[in-house]
């Protein structure tokens, strides 16, 4: 009996660890490949570790494409998008949650909710035309603004604000606190966990976004990282796999660090949607 339990435990952990290895192996492969020569990457049988560590790949990738600028673009756009998107979701969510007497509230809510499942690909053509008309192709506003008003974000923060007792707001009003001060000094501090959760999700989504930046930029200095990498991959002759792996590693490492730091919030953000939505 004792033996059988032991074997069960071993099998259990072996399965779990195998799964984790499958999850992580591609990352290991990316990192080790980023230190190989182009010839060594396409060698068969493949080698895990590089014969000679090619730090040069990390230098060369900045020479072939404006990768420093691309990294800056990605971070700048994602940060601006996150702050802006979360802010308008918080104010909007507050309005929908706490002004229940306002005429039109239900209609606004229903309209916003009904568009929640519309994927950006459906909006790409008209948005592209709009951007072209106002001369925003290859611009930061085009990368930041179009998907800032997300029904998902508004809904998530509204749900969270619903949990704040009305008495708290009423008491502040009686004390002579203005409506905007109530929002900034009472509501915002209370919803911090939800704001952090939504913020990390927004940041990750935007940092990794490909479809829209691909459409709305065509100058290499305005590319975000995913587009820059895709352009390297898309070269007709001699795809520079070693540079691509270096670029991929450079773009992924910061994200992993952010994830490890904020993982509590990311996980709560994802599960919030599942359990309440």
């Amino acid at each position: 009996m004792f033996e059988k339990e032991n074997i069960k435990t071993y099998v259990f952990y072996i399965l779990l660890i195998t799964g984790v290895l499958i999850s992580l192996l591609p990352f290991v492969w990316m990192i080790t490949s980023s230190f190989k020569t182009l010839a060594e990457i396409s060698e068969y049988p493949p080698s895990l570790l590089p014969d000679e560590v090619m730090w040069n790949n990390y230098v060369d990738v900045f020479d072939t494409v404006p990768y420093g600028r691309n990294l800056f673009n990605s971070f700048f756009v994602a940060i601006m998008y996150t702050f802006f998107g979360v802010f308008i979701s918080a104010t909007g969510g507050y309005a929908l949650s706490k002004y229940r007497e306002a005429p039109g509230r239900k209609l606004f809510f229903a309209v916003i909710l009904s568009t929640m499942m519309i994927p950006m690909q459906v909006l790409a053509i008209p948005l592209y035309i709009l951007m072209a008309q106002v001369g925003w192709i290859n611009s930061y506003p085009a990368l930041i603004l179009p998907f800032a008003a997300q029904g998902f974000g508004l809904f998530m923060l509204k749900q969270y604000i619903d949990g704040i007792p009305d008495d708290l707001i009423e008491a502040a009003r009686i004390d002579g606190c203005g409506e905007f001060r109530i929002f900034f000094q009472i509501i915002l501090p209370v919803i911090k966990p939800a704001v952090a959760a939504l913020g990390t999700i927004y940041f990750m989504n935007n940092y990794n976004l490909f479809f829209w930046p691909l459409i709305v930029t065509n100058k290499s200095i305005m590319y975000t990282v995913p587009v820059a990498i895709a352009q390297l991959q898309g070269q007709q002759f001699g795809i520079p796999l070693h540079h691509i792996m270096a670029a991929a590693t450079l773009s992924t490492v910061p994200l992993i660090i952010i994830f490890l730091y904020f993982q509590k919030y990311i996980i709560s953000g994802i599960t919030m949607g599942a359990l309440k939505g």
Binding site: F27, N208, F210, P226
Partner: peptide, 20 residues
């Protein structure tokens, strides 16, 4: 954390890794 890692990475990066 280990199981969640693939989701954190951008699809483009995932694509280039799996191409290899």
């Amino acid at each position: 954390v280990g199981y969640f890692m693939p989701f954190v990475t951008s699809t483009v990066v995932v694509g280039v890794i799996f191409t290899i």
